[in-house]
Each structure stands twice: as structure tokens, then as C-alpha cells.
């Protein structure tokens, strides 16, 4: 009886899981479909035929043609891909360079004003972009870096989210190890580099994965701060492709999806830990 109930639950969950994965599978098949097949399937949407759009789970004639076309003959696309990569990687490096020591400080030191600073970091982490949009715009304008990549990178580097995540993990480094290092004459900076960073590595990886996915997916910030199209990341370029250019659109979407999916598959465990770090109270 219990076995049957279990199987039944499994089937329901599996169907739900398939439904949830469907848009992703859809995007992947689209990326391997030829323009003519997409046009045929989507004829009803493009206004070329009556009836309804169609879709096959596997393309009838799978092809790499749109992908090759995209990679070989669309320099414009390459610029956007490179913009996305550059922005995301620079944000990542900045978040680690500034965030790691800050997280170490909040996790392991006692100093006046620490409680209030921690509280401010938490509040800023939870503020949505719509609150910070105008403040960021004003300061970027004063600095004269609007409409450059720096306008998107600089505020994201000082996002307090990575600090919060890493701090959680730095806190679990046993005090005894630090004490032993101190007795051996290690300085504060050495302890941070030689003990804090290696032992807090899982937290750093969590923060890096969540941070990269966030900036790879960034839409509101470049939309508000970057006007020049050649500076746009992929996330702004993709919606510009209409369905009549579906072959190119699906191929470009696939190229945006692949890095995110690879990161997900290789770092899922860290992603989960990073998400959970926000839920368990200190």
C-alpha cells in the first residue's frame, strides 16, 4: 500500500518537474531547429497561416545551422556576448576583492558600530532595484560614468549580498584554529589569507555562483544606465529579436542559456547552500 502511494507521489512530482523543465527544453530544441522548421511551426503566430502554433519536442531536422550562422556571421551578437561576459566577470572579481575582507571582518572581529553596520548591510541586501535606481543614477551621473560598463559594474561590486553569504560561512571557521595560528605568530592578514579563505572556500564559491547568475541575468540596471546599444549585454539584445527571426533568436538564447546551465550543473550543491544561507537565522 505504502509503495503504491509512494509511486503515485513520484509520478505526480515527475509530471510537475517535466512541466517546469519544459520551457528550458523548448529553448534548447529551438536553438537546434532550422529557420524553415521554426517558421512552419510558428506560422500561426507570425500571421502566415490560420490555426495554432505547433512544436515538436525534438526538431524534425536538427541542425547546427542557426548556431553556426550566429557564431560566424553576426559580429553584432559577438559584441553583446562579450559585453555580458565582461560585465559579469568584472563584477565577480570586484565582489570577491572587496567582499571577502568585509565578510571576514563582520564574521570574526568586534569593533564599535559593527551591529549597526551589519544591520545596514542586511537592509541593503534586501532592497529591490526600484528603490536604488534613482540613488545609483544620481551618483553615476555625478561621477560622469553613465552609459559606460562601469555604470553597471561599480554598484554591483558593492552589493552587500556576497558579504552576507560569505560572512555566514566565515563564522563557522573554528576559533581554536585561529588561536593556534596567532600563537604561532601569524598576523591578522596572514590568518585571513592562509586560514580564512581556504576554510571559507565553500561560502566564497556559493557567493560567486549566485553573484555570477545574478549579473549574467541583469536587465534593469543596463536598461537604465546604458543607452548606447553597442554596450548592451545579451539580456537586453535578446528581446529585440522578433519571432520572424526565430532561428537567430533561439540560437542566441541558447548561447545565453548554456553558461548558466553549465554553472548550475557543476555547482548545484553550492547554489543550494547559498540559497539556504539566507533562510537559517544566525
Amino acid at each position: 500500500m505504502k509503495k503504491i502511494a509512494n509511486l503515485f507521489i513520484f509520478i505526480i512530482l515527475a509530471v510537475l518537474a517535466l512541466l517546469i523543465c519544459f520551457p528550458v527544453l523548448f529553448a534548447v530544441t529551438g536553438g537546434f531547429s532550422a529557420q524553415w522548421e521554426l517558421e512552419k511551426n510558428l506560422a500561426a503566430i507570425l500571421g502566415n497561416a490560420d490555426g495554432l502554433a505547433d512544436w515538436s519536442i525534438l526538431p524534425k531536422a536538427p541542425t547546427l545551422e542557426p548556431l553556426i550562422h550566429l557564431l560566424m556571421d553576426s559580429p553584432q551578437y559577438f559584441v553583446m556576448f562579450w559585453n555580458s561576459l565582461k560585465i559579469s566577470l568584472l563584477i565577480l572579481v570586484g565582489q570577491l576583492v572587496f567582499g571577502m575582507p568585509a565578510a571576514w571582518s563582520l564574521a570574526r572581529f568586534v569593533f564599535p558600530g559593527k551591529r549597526i553596520i551589519s544591520a545596514i548591510y542586511l537592509v541593503l541586501m534586501l532592497m529591490p532595484f526600484q528603490v536604488l535606481m534613482l540613488p545609483e543614477y544620481l551618483v553615476l551621473n555625478d561621477m560622469g560614468i553613465l552609459d559606460t560598463h562601469a555604470a553597471v559594474i561599480a554598484p554591483a561590486v558593492f552589493s552587500t549580498f556576497p558579504v552576507f553569504i560569505m560572512q555566514r560561512f566565515f563564522r563557522s571557521v573554528p576559533e581554536a584554529i585561529l588561536e593556534a595560528a596567532r600563537i604561532d605568530g601569524a598576523g591578522n592578514f596572514q590568518i585571513f589569507l592562509r586560514i580564512g579563505i581556504p576554510l571559507g572556500a565553500p561560502g566564497i564559491v556559493c557567493s560567486a555562483i549566485l553573484g555570477f547568475l545574478e549579473s549574467w541575468n541583469m536587465i534593469e540596471q543596463p536598461m537604465t544606465f546604458i543607452k548606447t546599444k553597442s554596450l548592451w549585454p545579451l539580456s537586453l539584445f535578446l528581446p529585440e529579436i522578433s519571432l520572424s527571426d526565430a532561428g537567430l533568436g533561439f540560437a542566441a538564447a541558447l548561447m545565453m542559456l548554456i553558461p548558466a546551465l553549465l554553472l548550475f550543473l557543476s555547482g548545484q550543491e553550492y547554489l543550494e547552500q547559498g540559497i539556504a544561507a539566507a533562510a537559517v537565522k544566525e
Binding site: 503566430i45 502554433a53 535578446l238 548558466a260
Partner: peptide, 25 residues
């Protein structure tokens, strides 16, 4: 499977959404 959408960039499924929710979709 349930966690995948967390990693999927919104822009990469925008065409899918358009095909799904079009009135002839």
C-alpha cells in the same frame, strides 16, 4: 529539475514565453 529555473536567465526564455502565451500559441 525544480531548481533549474533559478539559474535560467529570463532573457533566454523570452521567445519561449512569447510562443507559449501568444493567442495562437
Amino acid at each position: 529539475a525544480f531548481l533549474i529555473p533559478v539559474a535560467v536567465p529570463a532573457a533566454s526564455v523570452v521567445l519561449v514565453w512569447k510562443v507559449l502565451f501568444h493567442s495562437n500559441g
